[in-house]
Design a protein around this nucleic acid. Sequence first.
DNA 1: CGATCACTTGACGTTAACGTCAACGTAAAG
DNA 2: CTTTACGTTGACGTTAACGTCAAGTGATCG
Lengths: 127, 127
Amino acid sequence: MTTPRTWSIAELADEFDITHRTLRHYEAQGLLAPERRGQVRIYHRRDRTRLALVLRGRRLGFALDEIRTIIDMYDEQPGEAGQLTYLLSQIEDRRRDLEQRRRDIEDSLRELAEVERRCQEDLRTLN
Amino acid sequence: MTTPRTWSIAELADEFDITHRTLRHYEAQGLLAPERRGQVRIYHRRDRTRLALVLRGRRLGFALDEIRTIIDMYDEQPGEAGQLTYLLSQIEDRRRDLEQRRRDIEDSLRELAEVERRCQEDLRTLN
DNA sequence: CGATCACTTGACGTTAACGTCAACGTAAAG
DNA sequence: CTTTACGTTGACGTTAACGTCAAGTGATCG
């Protein structure tokens, strides 16, 4: 039997190319909650996964507290029907947001391609 | 012959649901450069278009100075071959960035769909 | 002609997301 | 046993992107 792997703060910081300050900040914001061995933080695979989600949210330009509510949606254990329908409405909001972003991105990519085309054409006429 | 339409700061702010402060801020950052009739700003269709690009960049989570360099890429009139190849490399960087974001978004959408599915299943078992 | 808009500049305030010390604990290594 | 490495908690600093006054200007309306 193998003991499940854990990480120190420096190991996680290295792997994801962030600082320990960032990790402590995320913890202070309630995004992570690593185990404590005395004073020292021990990150489990679960923390690692959450961190990856946080960083993806960050790449997408979400604020940290938005990210928290999103992530909390994922591993919530919902009880009653009211909470479930509320969660579903939240999901709808998120989906709309993400789909708007996707449209924005695809528009941007199309326009980039157009600029690139003109660029290469200009380059050819220079030769 | 119809005179081309222009906008006041309030009209643009209303239309795009931002404040005049935001518009002045974008101008201070070099993102917009409306005409001046005396002291007063007159926005032309060109400014309107740039504003739309800025706001799209903002929705995508870009910083304002990134947005400026991106937008400047669009309506630059490049002369020599060196600048053209440099511009092409910039375009490549942007494209990579945007494609990463698109992947992130599609992953997020997939996971959202999964959470939604489980939610609706839970709802059914409650009935 | 005084009031009311719509607009202007200037300057300081605010929030988020960390950066950057300072000062301390602790465990292994020489 | 002291140095070194790695970790910890404050606490204040910084930057971006505006918000929020305050105080003034110019056109128009009754």
